[in-house]
Design a protein around this nucleic acid. Structure first.
Lengths: 136, 136
DNA sequence: TCCTTATTTCGCCAAATGACGAAATATACG
DNA sequence: CGTATATTTCGTCATTTGGCGAAATAAGGA
């Protein structure tokens, strides 16, 4: 029940939910999530911490940069079911579609701030437009 | 997104979650939920209101008594998915199993307080032990 | 009609939460 | 080593939330 409650609580905040959905496009750097959300860096850090503690996202550090991604298939069933629920619930949400477009723009400016690799960018944009296609 | 957030928020409180799970045994009267939860009647009422506004439960009034039950199959897909998630996540939770036993005790005292019908009682206990059986 | 009972609404309070800026920590570079 | 940068942690503040008791509302019975 503890796990469930922390997940549900984590999902109950709009900014956190939008960050989580933004990660569908693939791994994002904190600086990108910060730009996307428009919140203060400290606030973003705290939100990401909540998502991470709930098991919904994983982080990895590369130098000064921290990248976060959605929990993988090794996550608990409760987490995987939650992510599935989030995605299904927002399959046709115009706000989320709008957010998705904004992520594309932010990713175009990659390498201006964090050292994301070229192949990661190509992979992310490619995967993302596939998902986007399904939405439209 | 509004709908999703209200559901997730509703599910993020332990007392509300336990009330929701208690309704798996079938329709319950507010007086029974109040007894089960151990909270003040006004608090119970507020929690139930949140669950109802999120679409997770439906209520019906019969004289002085109000009965609540889990949302039915006419509920939105987001709600149905959420209820499925709740149930799957707690399939093997000892605390929830304990709660389930307590509900049985409370239902045995039915008719001491609210005018639930005999056939409803038989149906509820019967359904509930079936569910309980799957848990054990 | 008055009294009782069940539930909801309201008002208050303490705790929790989301937002921000400042400070701390970690990493990279000249 | 000093400076710059990215992120996290801490402290503060305003708002929200969960809990309670009192008041209000609705229904039933004598």
């Amino acid at each position: 029940m503890r796990e469930f409650l922390s997940i549900a609580s984590a999902l109950g905040d709009e900014n956190r939910l939008r960050m989580l959905l933004a990660l569908r496009s693939g791994e994002l750097c904190v600086c990108e999530i910060t730009e996307f959300s428009g919140l203060a860096p400290s606030t973003v850090s705290k939100h990401l911490s909540i998502l991470r503690d709930a098991g919904l996202i994983d982080g990895r550090k590369e130098g000064r940069w921290v990248y976060y991604r959605l929990a993988g298939s090794d996550a608990s069933p409760v987490v995987l079911d939650a992510i599935r629920w989030v995605q299904n619930a927002h399959a046709a949400d115009p706000r989320v579609a709008q957010d998705a477009e904004r992520i594309v723009e932010i990713l175009k400016d990659r390498k201006k701030q964090c050292p994301a690799a070229d192949d990661i960018e190509a992979s992310i944009v490619s995967d993302f437009e596939t998902v986007g296609g399904k939405q439209r």
